[in-house]
């Protein structure tokens, strides 16, 4: 049994090294674009915007906003690959710093592939989020949408009880982030034949430092504009 597992892990190591990062990246981009289509077409339709803003905006402003959205619907789709590439590269850079400082030999390319594969955790999270949203279409507003992201600190407190600048950080702190770190650590440990716990000790502080930087940056920008 142990032999079989070891054999499986060895094969996994080989397959991670062999797989083409750009093909995986294209698949991930395709999945995220699919999510965007579902969100635009079936989740955040006109009704949600009207429900979210009709109390505060005048009819003419609401129509102008919806018109703007209709004209520039493609904007988000164009930037999805670029934003994803930046996000993945940032995570890779953070983990690379951790590996270099821990004297572990790793190619940037291989860490990037592992980060890409671990993205499956967020794909699962996003799928659950969309399913959750689809059950609340009748009452959904842009403000309450964050409440339905699964297993977050924000959904525990509720958006209405959290100040605006803290909402994104509390939504990002969720169990899927923990799972993401675990999966990356596990995949990396399979590559360099180290103990999983040792791999965690490299990935956790390096990724967490990058994540904290991102969260304080978003909180800073939110405070600047509000």
């Amino acid at each position: 049994m142990v032999g079989m597992i070891n054999h499986l892990f060895d094969r996994m190591k080989i397959s991670i090294n062999r797989c083409n990062g750009w093909i995986i990246f294209s698949i991930v981009v395709f999945i995220y674009l699919l999510f965007s289509v579902i969100i635009d077409q079936y989740i955040f339709g006109k009704e949600v915007y009207i429900r979210s803003f009709s109390d505060q905006l005048t009819q003419e402003s609401l129509e102008a906003m919806l018109g703007f959205q209709e004209r520039y619907w493609w904007f988000g789709y164009v930037f999805t690959p670029l934003l994803l590439l930046i996000k993945l590269s940032f995570a890779t850079v953070c983990i690379s710093i951790g590996t270099v400082l821990s004297n572990v030999e790793f190619h940037f390319k291989n860490i990037f592939k592992v980060v890409l594969l671990a993205e499956v955790v967020f794909i699962v999270a996003q799928t659950l989020y969309l399913v959750n949203l689809s059950f609340h279409l009748d009452t959904l507003t842009l403000e309450t949408a964050s409440n339905y992201y699964p297993l977050t600190i924000l959904s525990y407190f509720g958006t209405e009880n959290v100040v605006q600048w803290l909402q994104y950080p509390l939504q990002t702190l969720n169990l899927f982030e923990v799972a993401y770190i675990v999966v990356i650590s596990w995949l990396l440990s399979k590559q360099w034949k180290e103990d999983f716990a040792e791999s965690m000790l490299v990935v956790l502080p390096s990724y967490a430092t990058g994540l904290i930087l991102w969260l304080v940056f978003v909180a800073f920008i939110t405070l600047q504009v509000s």
Binding site: I97, L101, V216, L223
Partner: peptide, 29 residues
């Protein structure tokens, strides 16, 4: 060299977190 670069990068990230954190505190005040 690689290690030195990584260390500088880490210092930069920690510095940025400190700066942004202080700015957030300042803005809230």
């Amino acid at each position: 060299m690689k290690r030195k670069l990584a260390f500088i990068f880490l210092l930069f990230i920690i510095g940025a977190i400190g700066y942004l954190g202080f700015s957030i505190y300042d803005q809230l005040q």
